[in-house]
Amino acid sequence: MEVRTIKVFTTVDNINLHTQVVDMSMTYGQQFGPTYLDGADVTKIKPHNSHEGKTFYVLPNDDTLRVEAFEYYHTTDPSFLGRYMSALNHTKKWKYPQVNGLTSIKWADNNCYLATALLTLQQIELKFNPPALQDAYYRARAGEAANFCALILAYCNKTVGELGDVRETMSYLFQHANLDSCKRVLNVVCKTCGQQQTTLKGVEAVMYMGTLSYEQFKKGVQIPCTCGKQATKYLVQQESPFVMMSAPPAQYELKHGTFTCASEYTGNYQCGHYKHITSKETLYCIDGALLTKSSEYKGPITDVFYKENSYTTTIK
Results as ranks from 00 to 15, higher is better:
E52F: 10
G299A: 06
C112I: 04
G267M: 10
F217H: 00
Y306L: 09
G33N: 01
I15S: 09
Y214R: 04
Q197Y: 03
Q230G: 04
S294M: 15
V21Y: 14
M26T: 10
D165R: 06
A262L: 05
A154T: 06
V8P: 05
L290F: 14
K44P: 11
E281R: 03
S240Y: 00
K7S: 13
E2Q: 09
D41L: 09
V206C: 02
E168S: 01
E296R: 09
L283Y: 05
T64Y: 13
V189C: 09
F9N: 11
Q134S: 09
T11L: 05
G53H: 10
G29V: 06
K183S: 10
Q196K: 14
L200N: 04
Q238S: 05
V221I: 14
I301V: 04
Q123M: 02
Y137M: 15
V3H: 14
H273G: 05
A146P: 02
Y84G: 04
I301N: 00
C261S: 04
A289D: 15
E204I: 00
L173K: 05
I286A: 00
L114Q: 04
N14Y: 10
D180P: 06
K93Q: 09
F259T: 01
Q230K: 12
I105K: 08
V58L: 11
I315L: 15
Q30S: 15
A140D: 07
M26A: 14
E168I: 08
K307W: 00
C285E: 02
Q251E: 13
V67R: 15
F70D: 06
K219D: 06
T211V: 10
A40K: 14
N61S: 13
V22N: 01
T27L: 11
V99M: 14
T27A: 13
I45C: 15
F305Q: 06
M245T: 00
K275H: 04
P300W: 15
T302S: 07
K219L: 11
L186H: 03
V166I: 00
M207E: 05
L121R: 05
D109H: 09
T55M: 08
L126Q: 01
R4N: 12
Y208N: 01
E239L: 09
Q98F: 00
G143W: 02
L37W: 14
T103R: 06
V58N: 06
K127I: 09
C190W: 05
E162H: 08
D13V: 04
L119T: 02
T120P: 01
D63Y: 06
I301K: 01
H256E: 07
V12E: 11
Q134L: 07
Y84N: 05
S295E: 09
T278S: 12
T19N: 09
T11P: 06
E52C: 10
M244T: 02
Q123I: 07
C193V: 02
G101R: 01
L59T: 12
N129H: 11
K275S: 08
Y72R: 10
T120M: 02
A262S: 00
T211S: 07
V189P: 07
S50H: 12
N309L: 09
N100C: 15
I15A: 09
Q230R: 11
T103V: 12
N14R: 15
C271S: 12
C227S: 02
G101V: 02
M207G: 02
C285P: 05
N111S: 01
G29R: 05
D109K: 04
M24E: 09
Y113N: 05
V185D: 04
S86Q: 13
E308C: 10
V206W: 04
Q197L: 09
Y28W: 03
R184N: 05
R66K: 14
A247N: 01
A87C: 03
T314W: 10
K219M: 10
N129R: 15
G161Q: 00
D38K: 10
C190H: 06
L65K: 13
G39V: 05
I105S: 07
D13N: 15
K183F: 07
Q251T: 14
E215T: 01
E253M: 05
T232K: 04
M245N: 01
V99W: 11
T302A: 04
N187S: 11
E264R: 06
T226F: 10
G39S: 13
Y234C: 07
Y297D: 00
G143N: 05
T91K: 02
F9R: 12
M209N: 12
N129A: 09
H51P: 03
L17W: 00
T169M: 10
T19V: 14
Q237H: 15
A289P: 05
L200W: 00
P241I: 00
N61V: 09
L212M: 06
T198Q: 15
